[in-house]
Every structure is written in C-alpha cells, then in structure tokens.
Design a protein around this nucleic acid. Structure first.
Length: 543
DNA sequence: TAATGCGGGAGGA
DNA sequence: TCCTCCCGCATTA
C-alpha cells in the first residue's frame, strides 16, 4: 500500500499519562484507509452536524459508533447496523460504540474501570457509574516509584470491607478516590441493547488513575487460589511466615512480609507468593477469550456477518510480555486492550453555542495535570498507572517480565516532565497553551468534527502532521518523539476533570473531604520514562 | 463471596 | 419534573 496519508494518534488512556496508544492510519491510492498494525477502533468526536450519518474514513478516524448520529437516550437508535466496534475495555471521554450483541463483553457490560450499576429508572438503558480507584492513603511509592491503584470492589459491602484493609505495601489505610470526571459526578457508562447491536455511550473523563482491571483482579485471585493450593506454595508460605516472624519488628521495611498481618486471605498470599515466589504466567481470561483484543476493527469495515481474517488469528495479546507498569504504549500496544479512543477536535469547527448545556472555558495548560487546585489528582499519573499489585510483585511477578527491554530512566525523555512528574503535560512550556473545554452538563453530548492528524496525549491534543511515516514511527518505538506536538487552540469536546474542578462549584462536602484526605508525595522522577519504555502492555495477562 | 441488575427513595436544580 | 446518587434486595457466577 502506498501511504499517501498518514495520521498518528497518541492517546493517553487515562488522560493523565498512564498509557499511550499510537495509532497509524494510512490511506492508499484508492482512498481506502487502513489502520496499520491492526489498531483498535480509534475514536474521535466527529462532526455530528453532517447531513450524512457516515463520514469519510479518509478524513475522519472514528469508531463506528461515533460515525453515526445517535444518543443513548434517543427513542430510536440507528438500525440495520452493518459495522460494529471492537469491544473497548478502557473507554474514557465522551465516546460511543456500537457492539455486536454477540460480543460477550458487551453483553456483560464489562469495563476496565470499576463501574457499578446506577439506577436511572430506565429499564431500556443500563447506567453504570465509576467508583474510582483505591489507593494507599499515604501514597506510598512502590518499589519502582509507582503508586498503588487497586480496583474498588463493586459490591458496597465488599468495598467497605476492602477499604478496611491496609496497604499491602506500607500497611497504611486504603482509601477510595472517587471518580468525579463527569461534572463532578462519576463518569457514567450507558448500555442499551437494540436488536443485534449493543449501544454503548460514555460520559465523562476519568480523573483518577486506572484501577486494576477486572481481568487482572480476577486473574490475581485465581492465581492466588492456585498458588495457595499448591504444595510447593505451602512450603514457601511456611518459610515466609518464618521470615515474617524474624523481621516483624523492622518497622515495615519488609512490606511484603509485614503486611501479612494486615491482609486477608487471598491478597495476603498473592503478595507473598508473587513477590517472593513468582507465579508462573497466569492466564487472565476474564474477558471473553480474545474477543476484546482481536483486530475487530478491520478497515474498511467489520460486519457482523463476516469476520475479518484479522480477527481469526489467535489473540495477539497471548504470550505478549507485559511491562510491570502496565502501560499501553507505542505501536505494539494496540495489541492490548486498545481501548483508548482518540478524541479529536476539529479546530476549524467552532463549537455551536446553541446548546445551553455546554460551558466553554479556557484552561491553561493541560486539562489534567497542571492545576494547583488538583494537587491530589496531579499526584497521580503515569507513575501511578501501575496496577498496584503488579508493582508490589516486582519484576518477577509475572514471569516474563524479565523479557522487557529496560530503558534507562532518563529525565530528559521527551515525555518526561520533571516538573510534573505525575502526568505528562506535553512539551515543556512556561505558558502552556490554553485549551478550550466544552462541558456538557446535560445528557446530550456534543460531538465535533475530528481531524485525523492530531495527537492526544494526556488531555492535550497535538498536531502530528509532520510525522513522516509509519515505519519510522514503528522503528522508533514507544519513545519516539513527536517534535511537532502542539496544542490546538480550540476546544476538545471532552470535559476534563480539571475543567470541572476549576469551573464547577465546590463539590459536595463529602467529596471534598474525601479528596482532601488523599495526599501523595511526588514520584521518583525516573519512573515514568522507565515505564513508558515498555512497548508492550499486558492487559489481561493472556500470555 | 462478590458481581450484577433492578427498584425505591432522597436530594438538588 | 428531571436527573442524580444512595441503598437494599434478589439473582448469578
């Protein structure tokens, strides 16, 4: 294929530097687009004002769901869906997908985020809201400088129980960081089943680190069970208990031992076993087979009736080593969950002002990482993205980790910002370009035209038109620099957490209190660059 | 045991 | 009135 047009999308999965997805789209001479390397469906906010429902793929990289004009609350949703999106585990932002009703994950309304059911008094639409993430109240740094980010239990009782537990790393209390990414309220996901399609719509941008994914949580538990039931483990356990007794008075310098006294059953054992006696690769299989990660979004179309050859091969995630940080980064990352829809904003299309529910605001700097009002949130970031257990477990925790090519920590890394060690904030600049954020406070979501040639990293959107070609990008790997990154002058359609934090009225006392209770020290400066150096992301552990 | 879904209810705009 | 979240309960894995 002759690549006559190319765009690269770099998407911060969390909007705060956790992960990076590089997407390459090429257009051949026939005008057909293809996503090189089998990327998951890129998402963008398309020009919903277009008369036609379909957009030209050559100039708008969207999920199929975003290409159609619909809202989850519409009395009548698009019919006769011929193209479906691949399941997205980590949706973030105001995005929409249309899944096939045969998608097991869609059927189960799964999400990487900890989403709980929320009653919207509408039987047709299932609404779920994000629970946030469980962190260490002290914000202790793990071995690699990252932060603990556990998945909140969905069940209220289980969650209360969970919060009574102690940090497996420092034995401090665990605290729940609520999600406030949707106008001060938790990010909400809506599911609606219509015929052969399952419509998904997300509202809000998560303003907290990713928790441990459901699949990871389940895998860990299953691994623990297997480990505990193993005779070999019994011997190790006895040995560890002996060690624990020996070092019990060391004041927490042996966290993995110390927390024996504060962790219950499975989690206690999981740490011990995995940190000291690495478990052999466990197969995470919570998400239905490889379905979420197959190359379902084959260009130009993926229909319900036909299956692209790209979908048939075994899950590309299988046997792909996972970096300890859990980053989705660089080209190979699309093999992972690939659920980081790129949200585009067409700078040439001013936001309509007719929608009274929208609030436009000028934000200085990154939408996510710059506000002094959000020290708490800022303290999370890429370094934080490690799923806590993985960090605790150390490099040997998942067996193949030693395969990762270590990249020396380098504070001068193009993505490293020592001033904001917790979130990537784009190219260093004394006066970060302002971003206009449109807040949609009603159930109506505004979508705007997209430009394919932008990069969204963190919550900034950058222009990467000057990227020369895909091959160079791929060769450069995850740390390929994007020297031409720049922030567009106009708005992104998403409402960032920062936006609401700056503009919205003070949150409820309860929320404020809970927020104030979280204090996190800075991260070690080199952790981020070290983490992002890993080109692979192991998501569900299907390796 | 926890996840999930449903429904009642309270509170705010 | 509408929309939100909280809570309890039943079902399921």
């Amino acid at each position: 294929m002759l690549v006559s047009e190319m765009c690269v999308t770099v998407r911060d999965a969390l909007g705060n530097g956790e992960a990076l997805l590089v997407e390459v789209k090429a257009t051949d001479q026939l005008g057909q687009t293809a996503q090189i390397c089998g990327l998951p469906p890129p998402i963008s906010h398309c020009n919903m004002s277009k008369a036609s429902d379909q957009f030209d793929d050559s100039d708008c990289v969207c999920s199929f769901g975003m290409k159609l004009t619909w809202d989850i609350n519409d009395p009548k949703l698009p019919q006769d869906i011929k193209q479906y999106d691949a399941f997205q585990e980590w949706t973030d932002g105001y995005v929409r997908f249309i899944y096939t009703a045969e998608d097991k994950n869609a059927q189960r309304h799964l999400s990487g985020w900890a989403m709980r059911n929320t009653n919207n008094h509408n039987c047709q639409i299932l609404k779920k809201s994000c629970l946030g993430v469980v962190v260490c109240s002290r914000g202790c740094a793990l071995v690699d400088g990252s932060k603990l980010t556990l998945r909140p239990a969905i069940c209220d009782k289980a969650r209360q129980k969970q919060q009574k537990k102690l940090c497996p790393n420092c034995s401090s209390a665990l605290e729940l960081v609520p999600c406030r990414g949707h106008s001060g309220y938790p990010v909400t996901n809506f599911w609606r089943s219509e015929g052969k399609a399952i419509f998904f719509q997300a509202k809000g941008v998560h303003d907290h680190p990713r928790p441990e994914s459901k699949s990871e949580t389940e895998a860990r538990r299953s691994a623990v069970k297997r480990r505990v039931s193993s005779p070999h483990f019994s011997q190790k356990k006895r040995l560890m208990e002996s060690e624990a007794g020996r070092y019990h008075d060391t004041g927490g310098h042996f966290p993995n031992i110390h927390h024996l006294s504060c962790m219950d059953g499975s989690e206690r054992f999981s740490i011990i076993a995995e940190s000291n006696f690495p478990i052999q690769a466990q197969h995470y299989a919570s998400f239905q087979n490889a379905e979420p990660y197959k190359f379902a979004y084959d260009a130009p179309s993926h229909t319900a009736d036909t299956t692209s050859p790209l979908q048939k091969p075994s899950n590309h995630r299988l046997y792909v080593p996972r970096p300890p940080c859990g980053y989705e980064f660089a080209v190979p990352s699309y093999l992972g969950s690939g659920s980081y829809p790129a949200i585009y904003k067409d700078s040439s299309s001013p936001q309509p002002e007719s929608d009274s529910g929208k609030v436009c605001a000028q934000l200085n700097g990154s939408q996510h990482g710059m506000s002094p009002l959000n020290v708490h949130d800022r303290s999370y970031d890429a370094a934080n993205k490690h799923h806590g257990w993985k960090q605790i477990l150390g490099k040997g925790g998942y067996g193949e980790r030693s395969e990762y090519s270590p990249v020396p920590a380098n504070s001068s890394h193009p993505y490293h910002n020592s001033e904001y060690p917790c979130r990537y904030t784009g190219p260093a600049s004394a006066t970060p370009p302002a971003l206009q954020t449109i807040i949609t406070t009603t159930t109506k979501v505004s979508y705007q035209p997209c430009k394919p040639s932008v990069v969204k990293y963190g919550d900034n959107i950058y222009d990467v038109k000057n990227l020369q070609n895909c091959s160079s990008l791929l060769e450069n790997g995850p740390v390929a620099s994007y020297p031409e990154l720049k922030v567009p002058e106009d708005a992104g359609v998403i409402k960032s957490a920062l936006a609401y934090q700056q503009e919205a009225p003070p949150p409820k006392t309860e929320r404020a209190e809970s927020l104030d209770s979280y204090r996190y020290p800075g991260y070690c400066s080199n952790s981020y660059s070290e983490r992002i150096a890993h080109p692979f992301r192991y998501e569900n552990g299907e390796y």
